[in-house]
Each structure stands twice: as C-alpha cells, then as structure tokens.
Amino acid sequence: MSVPGAWYLGLAAMLFSIGAVGLLIRRNVLIMFMCVELMLNAVNLTFVTYARMLNDIGGQVVVFFVLVVAAAEVVVGLAIIVSIFRRRADATADDISLLKG
C-alpha cells in the first residue's frame, strides 16, 4: 500500500517552515540562500505529490520549470553576493546597507 499524499504534503509543509525559519534566524547571506532552496524544494515536493494525487502530469512540468528558475536565480544571486563581498569582507545581511543614505 502506497503512502497517502497527505503525508507527503505534511512533510513538505514542515520542510517549508524550516526553510522559512532559517531565512529569518540566520544572517549569513549564503545560508539564507540555501534556505530559499529548501523552500523551493518543499514546493516542488508538493507539486509532485499533487501530480500523483490528481493523476496529472502538469504538476511535474511545473517542477521542471521551477528547477530552471532556481538554477537561474542561484547564478544571479551568487554573482550579486560575490560583488558585495568584493566591497566588504563580511557576509552578514546586516552589513548590506549600502543603499542606506
């Protein structure tokens, strides 16, 4: 007997919450980025679970697009982090106040 979809959805909800909490409590920009990846993965798991529950391949197609967007986001985000690091050698989000007047 296969595992009901509700269990997968509960697991994805917990993974999403852990990612959200990590994004709020950590100050290292790289770790915050990893927490965003955790949240994206939680949503991907939800999509795949619904694809199975509703017997619809569309959920898996959406996950494919999310993977592409996540890859693009990481590339641009890490480029921004590298260019911030060039200016100042500390990686906490509190230090990124360059736009403050």
Binding site: L54, N55, Q60
Partner: peptide
C-alpha cells in the same frame, strides 16, 4: 480540481 487536465501521470 479536475483530474488530468494536462495529461495522465500514470
């Protein structure tokens, strides 16, 4: 929702 809008998964 209606099942299999974009095609069946199985």
């Amino acid at each position: 929702g209606a099942a299999s809008v974009a095609g069946a998964a199985d």
